[in-house]
Simulated scan of single mutants.
Amino acid sequence: MRALAPLTLVLSLTSQAQAHEFWISPQTYQVAPGGEIIAELRVGEKLKGAGFPYIPTRTARFEILQGDTRLDPQARIGDRPALQRVVETPGLAIVVHETADTFLKYPSWEKFEAFTSQKDFAWAQDMHRDRGLPEHGFSEVYRRYGKALVAVGDGAGADRPIGLDTEIVALANPYTDDLSGGLPVRVLHFGAPRSDVQVTLFARGADGTVSTSLHRTDGAGVAVLPMMAGTEYLVDSVILEPLEPAAEGDPVWYTLWASLTFRTPNE
Rank of each mutant, 00 (worst) to 15 (best):
R216I: 00
Q30G: 04
T69N: 12
G78P: 11
K119I: 14
D154Y: 04
S139G: 10
I77M: 10
A122V: 07
W123D: 10
I239Q: 09
V235Y: 02
G132L: 11
Y106K: 02
A246K: 10
T261F: 00
K105D: 03
R85Y: 09
A75V: 07
A124E: 12
K105A: 13
S108F: 01
L201G: 00
G230S: 04
P107I: 00
D177S: 12
R194P: 00
H128N: 06
A19N: 11
L183T: 10
T231W: 07
L243K: 03
Q118K: 14
Q118N: 12
R204K: 15
A3Q: 15
R58T: 14
G191C: 06
L41N: 14
A148M: 05
Y175K: 06
Q27T: 15
F262T: 03
G67Q: 02
K111M: 07
W253M: 05
A60F: 05
L11T: 11
K46N: 15
E244N: 10
S15Q: 01
A17C: 08
G191W: 09
T8E: 08
A122L: 06
A60R: 14
S213M: 08
T212W: 04
T200P: 00
V152G: 01
L41H: 15
V235R: 01
E267H: 11
M228W: 06
A124W: 11
T212N: 10
N173H: 09
G137I: 07
A229E: 08
R61I: 09
E88G: 06
E45S: 15
E110C: 01
K119W: 15
G67M: 04
P33Y: 09
L92E: 03
L65M: 01
D159N: 05
L133K: 08
A17Q: 11
A3I: 13
T176A: 08
P134M: 08
D154L: 04
T99Y: 07
D68E: 14
N173K: 08
H97M: 07
F52Q: 14
I24Y: 10
G221R: 02
L65P: 00
G78S: 11
D154P: 07
A258E: 03
V235W: 02
K48P: 01
D177W: 04
L83A: 11
L11R: 15
E232A: 11
E113Q: 11
D101S: 12
M227F: 04
Y106Q: 02
R2Y: 02
E167S: 09
L92I: 03
F52M: 15
I94M: 08
P242R: 06
S12P: 07
E63Q: 11
T99H: 07
T209G: 01
A170M: 02
G191H: 03
V31A: 04
T200V: 13
E45T: 15
P107N: 02
G137M: 05
A192L: 12
A93T: 00
L201V: 13
R129G: 08
A114H: 09
K147H: 02
R216K: 13
R70W: 04
L179E: 12
G44W: 06
R129I: 10
I162W: 09
P33D: 09
A82K: 12
A151Q: 00
A258S: 13
T255R: 06
P53L: 13
A223D: 04
R85N: 05
F22P: 10
M228D: 15
E40M: 14
A75N: 05
A192C: 02
L256A: 05
